[in-house]
Structure formats: C-alpha cells, structure tokens
C-alpha cells in the first residue's frame, strides 16, 4: 500500500535534512522534512514566515538542491542520488516551475517561452511539433492565444504569469512548483490566475506545491502545510 502511494505521488520528501552554513554560524539554517508526499492531482499550499525555508523546500522537491540526508522522489522515482545532469534532465521535463517574477525570457516570444522547457531538454522536431500542439491548447485554455507572438514586455502582468503557467504545464509534469505566483498581481488577476493554475494542474494530474503568503487563498487548496512544522511528527494540517 505504501509502495502504491509512493508510485502515485507526484512528489515525496522523506527524512530530509538540509543545512545552510556551518553549525554555530549566525546565518546557519536547517530545514527538516519528515515526510511530505503530494499525490498527483493534489494541490498543497506551503506557508511560513520569510526565511523559514519555503523556497528551499521547493528547490529540494525540484532537485535543484540535494539534501544531506533523506530521500526525494519525483514522479515515483528517487532523484536525490542521481547525477546532476540526470536530475536536470528529469527536472526539465518532470517539474513545472512558476515564479513570483514570472522569469520569462525577454527576447523570446510568448510561444517560445512556453516551449522553452522542451528546447532545454533538447527536443527533436517531432517532440517540438507535439509540444507546439499542447502549447496552443494551453494558450486557448489560459486565454493567451493573442499574446503568444508578443515578447513579454508587451504583455500585461496577468498575461505574463499565464504564459509562465503554460510554460510550467507544457511538459505535462508530475510536479508543479509555484513560488508566490500571485505575489505581483492585483487581487482580481491573482484570483483568475490561481483558478486557472489549480484547474489545469488538477486536470492534468500534476501534484502542485505552492508557496504563498496570502492566507485568503488557502481555502482553494486540498492541503496546507507550514514549513516550520514539516520536521515535527505531523506534516500538514
């Protein structure tokens, strides 16, 4: 039963310990995660004060950082022990990332930004054609068809974030990680964007972990975890 749950998990961190700095240093910091599993189709919000380790948690789940102890699973496979290049390859296609500042490449069109993960993974012509089809479908769903030909500076904030969401979902990842994706948006746009993000992630069977400071949004998630409590016996509320 545990193994089945493990396979079904979009992401799982178990017995993880991660430290910044040396013990005794004033800036030293430790993040502990006893067991955090996010199933496919599940949306989890992560809260906690600034500096409590929310972004570190996201980076550990994505395989950007590797823990000193513990296991990190992505789409049912353990990734913490993999070679760096292999972790990068799995991240490019298995993890969708949405950032607070959108982080779109300013010299690429909306469409090229959406297709970026496939380019980074070295997709061939056929895979790019298929990705193009998914990008068009996502664009229709997210209402950004008209801005696909524009560069980011000619888009509104809401359009940029929706392009970023399309970029995160175009590889049909098993895990979508969002770091304050609505932090730079006005409340109405933030609500729209969140609705679309949750609907698309759930509809595509992706596990979603979102870091947020906005407590008014928490009702929309299946679960809310406080990063400070992940190292205690109970992970999640």
């Amino acid at each position: 039963m545990v193994e089945k749950a493990h396979r079904d998990a979009g992401s799982r961190l178990r017995g993880v310990r991660f430290r910044y700095g040396r013990a005794g240093d004033r800036d030293a910091f430790e993040l502990a995660v006893d067991d955090l599993a996010i199933a496919r189709g599940e949306a989890v919000a992560c809260i906690g004060p600034s500096g409590s380790g929310k972004t570190t948690l996201v980076h550990l789940a994505a395989g950007i950082l590797t823990p000193e102890e513990g296991e990190v699973h992505l789409g049912g496979a353990r990734i913490d022990g993999l070679a760096d290049e292999e972790r990068r390859r799995r991240r490019a296609l298995g993890v969708g990332l949405v950032f607070q500042e959108f982080e779109l490449l300013d010299y690429l069109s909306g469409l090229d930004n959406v297709l970026l993960p496939h380019r980074l993974a070295g997709a061939g012509r056929e895979r790019m054609a298929a990705a193009r089809g998914r990008a068009d479908q996502l664009a229709r769903t997210l209402g950004i068809e008209e801005v696909l030909g524009r560069v980011p500076r000619r888009m509104s904030q809401g359009q940029r974030q929706r392009v970023a969401i399309a970029r995160a979902l175009v590889t049909e990842p098993s895990l979508v990680l969002c770091d304050e994706p609505t932090g730079n948006l006005d409340p109405t746009t933030a609500d729209d964007v969140l609705t679309l993000l949750l609907a698309e992630a759930r509809g595509r069977g992706a596990a979603l972990l979102m870091v947020t400071h906005d407590h008014s949004l928490l009702d929309r998630f299946d679960r809310v975890v406080d990063v400070r409590e992940l190292g205690s016996a109970e992970a999640g509320a």
Binding site: I64, D84, R88, A92, L97, L120
Partner: peptide, 16 residues
C-alpha cells in the same frame, strides 16, 4: 544573470 539562473532552475544542462 537572472535569466541564466532561471534556465538552471528549469533544468538546463549544467554548462548551458
């Protein structure tokens, strides 16, 4: 720098 960090986070090859 920021763009290159983003590419790195998205899983671009180490020497991208």
């Amino acid at each position: 720098a920021r763009e290159l960090v983003t590419l790195d986070r998205m899983g671009a090859p180490r020497r991208a």
